[in-house]
Amino acid sequence: MTDSFDDLLEQGLLEPSTDFLERAMSRIGPPRTEPPWRRWARGAALLGGALLGGAQLLAFALAAWTSSAAF
């Protein structure tokens, strides 16, 4: 293969269009952003769940202790 053709092959014959990246990004859709209140709601639900779970565990421990103390 002659050198000039080899150079052309190396360059690849085609170049990406200037808006290639922009179109690729628009194709995957807008960024998945969530409103701030949803983050707060998720945090509150997590905290509430943890508190309830802790209270339940405490109640179970107390019940076990009182029943064992009664006998």
Binding site: Q11, E15, F20, L21, R23, A24
Partner: peptide
């Protein structure tokens, strides 16, 4: 990732003998 690989991907498709329009569509 697209920025890094767009050129080699289009170049590969060009070397396969595809036209600019075909290569662009396939790469997208």
């Amino acid at each position: 990732l697209v920025e890094h690989y767009q050129r080699p991907v289009i170049a590969y498709l060009g070397r396969l003998g595809l036209s600019a329009a075909e290569a662009d569509e396939l790469a997208q």
